[in-house]
């Protein structure tokens, strides 16, 4: 067993678990935060996306014990019923889902992606590598390619993210 201290959504948790426990399984099975979803469990679908120390990662492809002292934000930490984050509200307003299974990962991913864009990170579709890419639909799609939606709600997901991105710019 491995002792690990995690700060999750601002709350400290002492985890005592087999070192094989992924961060995703720790969140879901040990801590009871089932918002983060297990889709492929191999880093391909993005349903498990959480934000660790400000960066989005696939929580299925990392061990909980590697995150001792880290700050983790899950979809539950972004907002709650009655107190939704801008992206959570926009996903509701634009119907950015069908079954909803990928949605927590989409929202965590998009939350951190908007910060990456704000920090001037380029993407594969950026014309030049200089700072300050406008988040066109093509940019949003490329930057969100690690999140798959099997219901193919992509047009509405892009609408939701674009609305929040434009709101942040204004």
């Amino acid at each position: 067993m491995q002792q690990t201290n995690l700060t999750i959504n601002g709350q400290e948790h002492a985890l005592d678990a087999d070192p094989r426990t992924t961060l995703l399984d720790a969140l879901r099975n040990h801590i009871g935060l089932t918002g983060s979803k297990k889709g492929c469990d191999h880093g391909q679908c993005g349903a498990c996306t959480v934000i660790v120390n400000g960066r989005r990662i696939n929580s299925c492809l990392t061990l909980a014990c590697m995150h001792d002292g880290d700050e983790i934000t899950t979809v539950e930490g972004l907002g709650q019923p009655g107190n939704l984050s801008p992206l959570q509200s926009a996903f509701v307003a634009h119907d950015g889902y069908q079954c909803g299974y990928c949605t927590p990962g989409q929202i965590c991913s998009a939350t951190a992606m908007l910060q990456e864009a704000k920090d001037g990170w380029p993407s594969n579709v950026s014309d030049d590598l200089a700072k300050g890419q406008k988040l066109t639909d093509e940019e949003i799609s490329e930057r969100m390619s690690g999140n798959i939606c099997r219901c193919a709600a992509y047009p509405n997901i892009v609408d939701a993210i674009r609305e929040v991105a434009e709101g942040a710019e204004a």
Partner: peptide
């Protein structure tokens, strides 16, 4: 790296996903 080695930035950005590149 963006200024002097753009081929490296471009190659990295062409691979994997945002989540994986962060790790």
């Amino acid at each position: 790296i963006r200024r002097d080695y753009p081929v490296l930035s471009r190659a990295i950005l062409a691979g994997a996903s945002g989540q994986l590149r962060n790790k």
